[in-house]
C-alpha cells in the first residue's frame, strides 16, 4: 500500500500551507493570478533572482512538502510536467533569434524539463533517483506510477509532484487555433510525499493509478481499472473530473452514472484549478484535503480526460477505507 504523508500546492487558489482550503474555493475568474508565497522563505535570494516562475513555485512547494512530512530525506524525486519551463524556453528563443554574438546561457540552461527536478535535488542536496516525465495531460499520472514502483522496489519516501507554468503566449496560441476554453489557462504545481509505511501523519492512501494513451477501448479500460482494484464504481463517494471534449468526456460520465455514481458526486475540478497540463495534481491535492475535512469520504476518483485521446485514473482512499 502507498500512503500520502504530505501534500502541498502553489496554484491560483489559496492552497499553500492552508489545510482545509477545499472548503472555500471560488471558481477561477478570467483575471485570476497565482497565489504566491514569500519565496524568500524557501529559496536563497541570489538563486531566486534567476529562477523562472515554474522553478520558484516548484522548489518552494517541494521544500514545504518535505517539511510537512517531518523533514524526511526522499529516496527519489519524480516530477511530471506537460510543457516544462516555457518562460525560459521563450526567453532563449527570443535571445538567440534576435541577439548577435555571445549569448547569456541562463535561459538555455533553465529551459530543459528536468531543470525542475534538478533544482529541487540541488536545493535539498539529494542524490537519489531523479526523474522527469512529460506526457502532456498524463505527465503527473506517469510520475505517480514511477513513484509507486520505486516504493515497491524498496524506497521508503518519494517526493513526487507536477508543475506547469502559464505564459501569455499560450493565450495567443489558443486564440489563433480557435480553441475555446471553458476556464482560463493557469499555472500550478503540487507536490506530495508518498511513503511505504503508515504513520500518524498519513493523510490518505494512494490506491491505484493508471494511464491509457491513444484510447481504443474506453469501456474495457474502465472495467479493468475497477475490477483489478476491487472497487465498485457505486462505492465512489466523489469523482473529480476534467474534460474538454464533450464526446469523449460524455462516454466516461455515462459509464460512471450508469454504474451508480450520482451526478452530484461528480465535480469538475478545472473550474478551480484553471487549465494546465498537469491540473490533475491539483485534483489529487484537493481530494486529499477533502478527505481530511470530511470523514464520510472514503473513495475518491480523479478522472482525467482533459485530452480526449488520453485517460488518467487515480484512486485515493481515506486511511480507514
Amino acid at each position: 500500500m502507498v500512503y500520502i504523508s504530505a501534500a502541498s500546492g502553489i496554484t491560483h487558489q489559496p492552497t499553500f500551507k492552508n489545510a482545509g482550503f477545499s472548503a472555500s474555493l471560488d471558481t477561477i475568474s478570467s483575471d485570476t493570478e497565482l497565489v504566491s508565497p514569500n519565496y524568500k522563505d524557501y529559496i536563497d535570494a541570489g538563486l531566486l533572482r534567476r529562477m523562472s516562475k515554474i522553478l520558484r513555485m516548484s522548489v518552494a512547494c517541494a521544500k514545504e512538502c518535505i517539511q510537512q512530512a517531518g523533514e524526511i530525506h526522499p529516496d527519489a524525486i519524480v516530477v511530471g510536467t506537460g510543457l516544462g519551463c516555457l518562460q525560459d524556453t521563450e526567453k532563449f528563443l527570443n535571445t538567440f533569434l534576435s541577439v548577435e554574438g555571445l549569448l547569456p546561457p541562463t535561459s538555455f540552461i533553465q529551459s530543459t524539463h528536468n531543470t525542475i527536478a534538478g533544482q529541487i535535488s540541488l536545493s535539498i542536496g539529494n542524490h537519489g533517483y531523479n526523474m522527469t516525465h512529460t506526457q502532456n495531460t498524463l505527465s503527473f499520472e506517469h510520475a505517480l506510477i514511477d513513484s509507486i514502483m520505486m516504493l515497491a522496489e524498496g524506497d521508503a519516501h518519494i517526493l513526487v509532484g507536477a508543475a506547469d507554468e502559464h505564459i501569455s503566449f499560450l493565450d495567443s496560441v489558443a486564440e489563433q487555433l480557435d480553441v475555446t476554453l471553458p476556464v482560463a489557462m493557469t499555472s500550478g504545481c503540487s507536490f506530495f510525499v508518498l511513503s511505504k509505511e503508515k504513520t500518524d501523519q498519513t493523510l490518505a492512501k494512494l490506491t491505484a493509478v493508471e494511464t491509457y494513451g491513444e484510447i481504443q477501448k474506453l469501456e474495457e479500460h474502465l472495467n479493468n481499472f475497477f475490477e483489478s482494484n476491487s472497487i465498485d464504481p457505486a462505492r465512489l463517494d466523489l469523482v473529480l473530473f476534467s474534460g474538454l471534449d464533450i464526446d469523449a468526456c460524455g462516454q466516461v460520465l455515462h459509464y460512471l452514472t450508469s454504474r451508480g455514481v450520482k451526478e452530484d458526486q461528480i465535480q469538475d475540478y478545472l473550474i478551480y484549478s484553471g487549465i494546465y497540463p498537469t491540473a490533475s495534481a491539483f485534483a489529487v491535492h484537493y481530494a486529499v484535503d477533502k478527505i481530511g475535512q470530511d470523514p464520510s469520504l472514503k473513495n475518491v476518483l480523479v478522472c482525467n480526460c482533459m485530452n480526449r485521446r488520453n485517460l488518467g485514473l487515480t484512486l485515493i482512499q481515506s486511511v480507514e477505507a
Binding site: H133, N136, S139, G213
Partner: peptide
Amino acid sequence: HDSGNTTERIARELGISGYINTLSTA
C-alpha cells in the same frame, strides 16, 4: 511542439496504445 506529442505520433503510427510515456532528463 510538446515532447509527449512526439511519442504519441510514434505510438499512433505503430498502433501502440495504453502505456505511452516520455521522459526528459536531458
